[in-house]
Amino acid sequence: MSGVFVWIEQFKGEPALVSWQALGVGRKLADEIGEPLIALVFGQNVGELAQKAIHYGADEALVADDQTLAAFRVEPYAALVTKLIEERSPRFMLAGATTRGRDLMGTVAGQVGAGLLSDVIGLDVIDGNLQATRPIYAGKLLSKEVAEGDFQMATIRNRAFPTPDPDESRTGTITQVEPVMAEDEITVKVEGVEEAVGEVSLTDANIIVSGGRGVGGPEGFEPVRELAEVLGGAVGASRAAVDAGWIPYAHQVGQTGKVVSPDLYIAAGISGAIQHLAGMRTSKVIVAVNKDPEAPIFSVARYGIVNDLFKVLPALTKAFKEKLGR
């Protein structure tokens, strides 16, 4: 047995987009080494997800459908992955570098003694080994690293790889597998999740509009929010704005916040401290709005407007409303 494992992450049955990106990368790796691509789908009532995994490129899906796996927990998930690795002896395993993906892969790597390349933004097979490019020092540098050993693992950064187009005509095998741990053996219990409603997650967002010191106060985020809303994007913030208490930490982009890579990043009133740039420099298109033409943010921007954000953002909101008919 052999193959490339990809863990398909889900929350209440909703797949994480990065899992499809991981399948896309897995497909490439599997083709290069001429081995099957196997999706691991765990949860409760996740049969449909297994089918989708095939559409996104898997040759086989190993499905574990059980109450104990309904919400993600490291213990039962890692135990099951470990058992499947022992049974199937895959060559590689991939997952998204999400909170859950990192927990799962780090734990499994410890369990089976595998090399783990985490949060990679580039991945290839060289001489049969995984070779990755991954950011270090919060993206200020890149590191090229190689894994060794019979079984190798990597987590991939959200949005660093394209999401493949699903092919609904694709067929594959769906194999049911049994969980390893019973509920009474699992020490961790999930008591509930308070979901952030109505907000687009920063790491998933295609578009992020961020505010910094220049917004001047909590109410200064209003025009930022309005523009984000009309664009269907998420609201980000610089550390200065978060430290000043104008907006919760969950919105912070940068070295000690979230690292994001949207298609469009609009930085309003953000000077572009090195810690902030580290968190957003891989965005596809960066727009900077700042009164100070010397602000370092302009050095990474594709477009810039040197003016007051309180004039520019409402004008942009209006322009997009007209052009997008929203």
Partner: peptide, 21 residues
Amino acid sequence: AKTKVLEKFPPPPREGEVEII
């Protein structure tokens, strides 16, 4: 060790100059 660092390097600079509107 099961992973090795081959090389560390700065990220490529972002291409192109900013276009100020």
